[in-house]
Design a protein around this nucleic acid. Structure first.
Length: 257
DNA sequence: CGATCTGTTAGTAG
DNA sequence: ACTACTAACAGATC
């Protein structure tokens, strides 16, 4: 569950579960997911989480000291708050609190990241420097896009441009904007760019409101029809698939040009 | 069995 | 400097 809506839903979940409780134990599987030395991860012990934030696909948990726990979900991350003895399958990090509750970061494919850092702003500048997709201004977006040479979909997915959009939501945004994912960004007029800007907001906000749950999303969302040959919910077209920027792209040739 | 998958990053080439 | 493409990572699923 790794794009902006999923990360935001997880952040909100953590904000309602793991705040203001003393951390009594930290367990990790180690391995490539951990991008800080183990001793830095262990600094969480005896601390408590006091605040949450998110930038693009990164989730941050600030502690009561100078440290922040950073989570990146990769392709298969999720979080779980519970209190039994059995930890979830594929948990790579388990944090235990003084009240007996636990919080696990689950990362099946181990393509995610876990770090403990001291300077969040510096971290963002280095790892996901684009403005967050939900806070970028229209002016910033326009300026950014007008400078782009390549295709629109890879431009939307590049975290150096805008933070938070991945393969699924890039398709969704372009689908509702009526723009072919392979269009050259430079060929898009003011109107099209405006439309994309608005759809970034509306699609991502809608997805967050649905708890990033595909089942709860509107019936006219492409995410429910990501299959070649599905009928397009917006017109008489048929969903097609082709590779753009090295990633599978689903779109309706009937209304996306 | 092989292909595919919501992400990132290093390497290469233009 | 920017863009484009590939492989690698690791496990599940079809």
């Amino acid at each position: 569950m790794p794009e902006l809506p999923d990360v935001e839903v997880s952040r909100s979940y953590l904000a309602h579960t793991v705040m203001h409780k003393k951390i009594t134990d930290i367990r990790t599987t180690g391995g490539r997911v951990f991008r800080s030395p183990q001793k830095d991860i262990m600094k969480l012990k005896n601390r408590s989480f006091e605040d949450t934030s998110r930038h693009g696909k990164y989730c941050f948990l600030d502690t009561d000291s100078k440290t922040t726990l950073v989570l990146h979900f990769g392709m298969t991350g999720s979080v779980n708050y519970y209190r039994d003895n059995d930890d979830p399958r594929h948990a790579v990090l388990v944090v235990t609190f003084s009240d007996g509750h636990k919080f696990a970061f689950i990362n099946i494919r181990k393509l995610g990241k876990v770090l403990v850092i001291e300077d969040k702003e510096k971290f963002i500048r280095k790892n996901s420097p684009g403005p967050d997709a939900l806070t970028i201004s229209k002016r910033e977006f326009m300026k950014m896009m007008r400078a782009k040479k390549g295709k629109i979909k890879p431009a939307l997915m590049d975290q150096k441009n805008i933070a938070g959009i991945g393969n699924i939501y890039a398709d969704e945004i372009l689908y509702h904007s009526g723009i072919d994912p392979g269009r050259k960004t430079g060929s898009l007029d003011e109107d099209s760019l405006n439309r994309i800007y608005e759809k970034i907001r509306s699609v991502l906000i809608t997805a967050v409101e649905c708890g990033a749950d595909v089942e709860k999303m509107p019936e006219n969302y492409l995410i429910k029809r990501r299959k070649k040959g599905s009928p397009c919910p917006l017109d008489k077209g048929m969903i097609n698939k082709r590779t753009i920027g090295g990633r599978s792209s689903y779109y309706c040739p009937e209304h996306q040009q």
